[in-house]
Design a protein around this nucleic acid. Sequence first.
DNA 1: TTTTGTGCAAACAATTTGCATGAGA
DNA 2: TCTCATGCAAATTGTTTGCACAAAA
Lengths: 154, 154
Amino acid sequence: MADADVVERFAAFLRERHLPVTQQRLAVADVLLRAAGHLSADDVAAQLAERGERVGLATIYRTLDLLVSCGLAEQRDFGEGFKRFEASRDVPNHYHLTCTMCGSVTEFYDARIVDIIRRVADHRGFVPSQHRLLVRGTCRACRKTPTVLDRRPL
Amino acid sequence: MADADVVERFAAFLRERHLPVTQQRLAVADVLLRAAGHLSADDVAAQLAERGERVGLATIYRTLDLLVSCGLAEQRDFGEGFKRFEASRDVPNHYHLTCTMCGSVTEFYDARIVDIIRRVADHRGFVPSQHRLLVRGTCRACRKTPTVLDRRPL
DNA sequence: TTTTGTGCAAACAATTTGCATGAGA
DNA sequence: TCTCATGCAAATTGTTTGCACAAAA
């Protein structure tokens, strides 16, 4: 999907619901949906400021929620004490390897995990709706530097 | 391990470091380390209040941190917007199935998951230090009731 | 007595909300 | 115009910190 389409899709969603298509909403969508990574509300604010776009934090939060509720973005909790947002891609459910030294996030997917979960849940009469796997550690680039064991909660 | 021992172990840890063994610390340890589930700071406060023990919230937070740093408890983030604490048991790393209707938490462990993670990480030169798998859904008891899809972030 | 803890209230950080004003349809 | 959005500041929530007083060692 081309990038331009994603923002246009957001505009379409708004029109469909008879909601105003404002500059601010488009600006926030443009930043988040074009971003490769996982952005916090502050990250979005910073990028908007850099571009000279003036959007209040409250509006950013409100627009991020909109993007999530129309399915164009997803909200993530990496246990950092704040939320991050990520443009939805075609990857249905992926897992995260986060480097505790440089903060980089790598993604992977493995169907066997879904399978194991299904089996375990089934065995207990549990019906899974979502799941999430988070791995913390040190990435290749940071391995050279001496490691400090990260004790933050997962 | 007998319950009494766990609190005594905490006292020993404090003595070892020449830290005061106070009533409050013992009270918090007693509540958390004897609890079966995953308690928030407020849960601990509530249970202490119920027992008639008067301990300030700040002290509860400080003691919970102590319990984590001596390895007798673990801090968890279920994406609820606050932390939970759990007495450490001999289970090394377990996964959680949380019911979005009744809030119950079931645990499971599957060695294959560790294996998959190791393999995936290895392949990218990533050294994992911790990992966490969270599954959300509906438990057996709640399946009867009509389900509302939970859209909270994971 | 000296160290370290405790309670309280103020401080904090991320996020949400109320409300007067301003922009889209 | 009429509805809904925006910005700002105040409110909220979970958690942390500063400080005077109190309890352990």
